[in-house]
Amino acid sequence: MPRFAILHHITPVDAEKPDHYDLLLEDGDVLKTFTLESFPSVDTSAKAVADFDHRMIYLDYEGPISGNRGEVTQADSGTFSWITRQADQITVQLQGKRLVGQLTLKIQDSSADS
């Protein structure tokens, strides 16, 4: 079963992006990554912005991010299954340490206002 992780990304004061959460979903040999404004809740939908694919190492990583981009701590992890996977919406079934249930991501354009 594929794995997931949610990382709390604490950014420097002068960073373009404020503190946020990164949802990482294992997809073959990469992690599909989505930026979330806050820690999600199951059985609801969350606004998400698709980010670039990350390396598998981030499933277990905590610590500083290169280029003075802050640091990450793991907020949750576990396994998941895809339920729906469309360009504008993804639903997954999470079996995590904190989150157990369905999470729907409403994919936003990265240039759209929050």
Results as ranks from 00 to 15, higher is better:
residue 16 E to N: 09
residue 59 L to V: 01
residue 31 L to D: 01
residue 103 L to G: 00
residue 24 L to P: 04
residue 38 S to L: 10
residue 67 G to A: 06
residue 57 I to P: 00
residue 34 F to P: 02
residue 93 Q to F: 06
residue 39 F to R: 11
residue 41 S to K: 15
residue 30 V to Q: 09
residue 21 Y to G: 00
residue 74 Q to H: 00
residue 34 F to E: 03
residue 10 I to R: 10
residue 53 D to L: 10
residue 54 H to G: 06
residue 97 K to C: 04
residue 106 K to F: 05
residue 43 D to F: 10
residue 30 V to P: 02
residue 24 L to H: 10
residue 62 E to T: 06
residue 114 S to Y: 14
residue 34 F to Q: 04
residue 61 Y to D: 01
residue 76 D to C: 07
residue 51 D to F: 15
residue 5 A to H: 00
residue 99 L to Y: 04
residue 110 S to D: 12
residue 15 A to T: 03
residue 85 R to K: 13
residue 95 Q to W: 03
residue 41 S to E: 15
residue 80 F to D: 00
residue 7 L to H: 00
residue 43 D to A: 12
residue 54 H to A: 12
residue 18 P to Y: 06
residue 89 Q to E: 15
residue 8 H to T: 10
residue 63 G to E: 03
residue 30 V to F: 11
residue 113 D to I: 10
residue 30 V to H: 11
residue 23 L to Q: 05
residue 28 G to M: 04
residue 47 K to N: 15
residue 9 H to M: 09
residue 77 S to Q: 07
residue 100 V to S: 12
residue 40 P to H: 06
residue 78 G to W: 01
residue 40 P to G: 06
residue 88 D to C: 00
residue 75 A to N: 01
residue 9 H to Y: 03
residue 113 D to V: 11
residue 82 W to C: 11
residue 66 S to Y: 01
residue 5 A to E: 05
residue 26 E to K: 09
residue 96 G to R: 07
residue 108 Q to D: 08
residue 89 Q to N: 12
residue 45 S to E: 15
